[in-house]
Amino acid sequence: MLDDRARMEAAKKEKVEQILAEFQLQEEDLKKVMRRMQKEMDRGLRLETHEEASVKMLPTYVRSTPEGSEVGDFLSLDLGGTNFRVMLVKVGEGEEGQWSVKTKHQMYSIPEDAMTGTAEMLFDYISECISDFLDKHQMKHKKLPLGFTFSFPVRHEDIDKGILLNWTKGFKASGAEGNNVVGLLRDAIKRRGDFEMDVVAMVNDTVATMISCYYEDHQCEVGMIVGTGCNACYMEEMQNVELVEGDEGRMCVNTEWGAFGDSGELDEFLLEYDRLVDESSANPGQQLYEKLIGGKYMGELVRLVLLRLVDENLLFHGEASEQLRTRGAFETRFVSQVESDTGDRKQIYNILSTLGLRPSTTDCDIVRRACESVSTRAAHMCSAGLAGVINRMRESRSEDVMRITVGVDGSVYKLHPSFKERFHASVRRLTPSCEITFIESEEGSGRGAALVSAVACKKACMLGQ
């Protein structure tokens, strides 16, 4: 009897593995994704193909990295998701002549009506938060230079001027797309009239992360975010950046690689679950690469896999709870928690219980395998993109072996128990001629924006502006 049951459990697990095998990517698959990513990057950089390229390769006008001589107080704003952060950054000489960066910050959550109302409502709310922060720190009387981390696709015309191309991540505030974001912020500050600010720089969160990590390690020339969304930036040779005049030196390019796949480059790798996630998203047909990796989508992918296993009578005796059938019910943090389970399955059992399920031991094991399959594919897909960037940098610099540091931020990278190990191992397999160091950014977005502002202020002083 026991043997029969054991055989049935083994057969069930084997069927589960057959279904989950769809998520496995072979090294040849990853090399294919990497080569296609490089081709799209090239198209994004070139003037004649930029418009139709899915990977936009947006110039950021960040050319210099901090040298350690900029000092002063800077205000930093960070808008990239449902939370908005205001930070005071003091850049100065530390002990023994070292450079020191001290920060104080406060988080504000953005109400739904500000995210989806008008641009005026959104930026009025942001300036209200700045006003509140300055009151708390008794700094209303000071006109501070301000660095703005704005983590949406922007076409820069200068370091302090950028046109919002399109909202992502659930934002829909009308009247912002096609307009200068810094102008919208300046107008809102003017409307309030109770404080003055000098907006000197606007950067993407990947750029802010790279600059913040450069402060720790001067070989950091790539910034990457794996959180709600997924994106990367890197220092490109100016001669390859056709959208900006000049051939000397390097400029940081914001790849906006989340949109890779929007022209069909990933079609052969998309599964039924991916198509369902895409169809029910706020932007169907867009940001397809990001939807395979980002935390906004990972939990939902797992939920759809679990429903398939229920329908195949391989999980929960073929019956799903009402909660499990509800879109968004299986949160991405559950994926991390399930994979963090120590082996007694308590954590998995508790999560499934909150979803109205009474799982068996085998159910718990199957749910864990589903989570591992989805998150491992995410790590491997992400590795193909980064390997594409790094191999490109090595080739354009004609280096036999390139040493490089990548600064990384984002909740999936930082909080998932195995993502970074799987990701690092896969990147290294795909970049055999590179020695890569990964560092995690601390308060990256805010500190990085302030350091970019410090560079901009120093330049302005040198130019006598």
Rank of each mutant, 00 (worst) to 15 (best):
E9D: 13
A10P: 09
A10F: 15
V16S: 14
V16H: 13
V16P: 08
V16R: 12
I19M: 09
L20W: 09
Q24P: 15
Q26C: 12
Q26Y: 11
L30A: 03
K31Q: 08
V33D: 03
M37D: 00
K39L: 10
K39I: 13
K39Q: 10
R43F: 13
G44C: 10
R46E: 10
R46M: 09
R46D: 13
E48G: 08
E48A: 11
H50C: 03
H50I: 03
E51M: 06
E52V: 10
A53Y: 06
M57D: 05
L58D: 03
Y61R: 03
V62T: 03
T65S: 13
E67K: 15
G68V: 14
G68Q: 09
S69H: 13
E70C: 09
G72A: 03
G72K: 05
G72S: 05
D73A: 05
F74I: 06
D78M: 06
L79V: 12
G80P: 03
G81H: 00
G81F: 12
T82W: 00
T82A: 02
N83C: 03
F84E: 03
R85H: 07
M87W: 02
M87I: 06
V89F: 06
G92T: 03
E93C: 15
G94Q: 08
G94S: 08
G94P: 15
G97D: 12
S100E: 14
S100I: 03
V101K: 06
T103P: 10
K104T: 12
K104I: 13
Q106K: 06
Q106G: 04
Q106W: 09
M107L: 06
M107P: 14
Y108R: 02
Y108D: 00
I110N: 05
E112I: 11
T118W: 02
E120P: 02
E120D: 07
L122P: 03
F123C: 03
Y125H: 10
I126G: 01
E128G: 06
S131M: 09
D132E: 11
K136Y: 02
K140F: 03
K143V: 09
L144T: 02
L144Y: 09
P145C: 13
T149N: 03
F150I: 06
F152W: 00
P153T: 01
V154E: 01
R155Q: 06
D158V: 00
D158T: 04
I159T: 05
L165W: 05
L165E: 03
W167N: 01
T168C: 02
K169M: 04
F171T: 00
F171A: 01
F171L: 02
G175F: 04
E177Q: 00
E177G: 03
G183D: 15
L184I: 12
R186M: 06
R186L: 02
D187I: 04
D187M: 00
R192K: 06
G193N: 10
F195L: 07
F195K: 15
E196R: 15
M197T: 06
D198Y: 10
D198T: 14
D198E: 15
V199N: 01
V199Q: 03
M202N: 00
V207A: 06
A208W: 05
A208H: 00
I211R: 13
E216H: 14
D217C: 00
H218V: 14
Q219A: 14
C220M: 04
C220S: 10
E221L: 15
E221P: 03
V222K: 00
V226W: 04
C230R: 00
C230W: 00
A232L: 07
A232K: 00
A232F: 01
M235D: 09
M238S: 13
N240A: 15
E242Q: 03
E242H: 05
E242P: 04
E245K: 12
G246C: 06
G246R: 04
E256W: 02
A259Y: 03
F260V: 01
G261E: 06
G264A: 10
E265N: 00
E265H: 07
L266P: 10
F269A: 12
F269G: 05
L270G: 03
E272L: 09
Y273R: 04
R275C: 08
R275K: 11
N283S: 08
P284M: 13
P284W: 11
Q286I: 07
E290V: 02
I293D: 02
K296C: 10
K296H: 13
E300G: 09
L301W: 03
V305C: 09
V305G: 11
V305E: 06
L306C: 06
D311F: 02
E312A: 13
N313E: 08
L315A: 13
L315P: 01
H317M: 15
G318K: 06
G318T: 13
A320M: 14
A320S: 09
S321T: 14
E322D: 09
R325W: 09
T326G: 13
R327S: 10
G328E: 13
G328Q: 15
A329L: 13
F330I: 13
T332A: 06
R333M: 04
V338C: 07
N350P: 09
L352H: 06
R358N: 08
P359N: 08
T361L: 10
D363M: 11
D365C: 07
D365N: 11
I366F: 09
I366D: 14
V367G: 03
E372G: 10
S373K: 06
V374A: 07
S375D: 00
A378R: 05
A379F: 00
C382R: 02
C382I: 08
S383D: 01
I390T: 07
I390A: 07
R394N: 11
R394G: 09
E395F: 11
E395G: 14
S396L: 10
R397L: 08
E399R: 12
E399H: 11
V401P: 12
R403E: 13
I404C: 08
D409N: 06
S411F: 03
L415Q: 11
P417D: 10
P417F: 08
F419C: 04
F419L: 07
K420G: 10
R422F: 11
V427W: 10
V427Y: 07
L430K: 04
L430C: 02
L430T: 08
P432I: 10
E440V: 13
E442T: 14
G444R: 03
G444N: 02
R447P: 01
R447M: 15
R447E: 05
A450M: 01
L451P: 04
K458T: 15
K458S: 14
K459N: 15
K459L: 11
M462L: 11
Q465K: 14
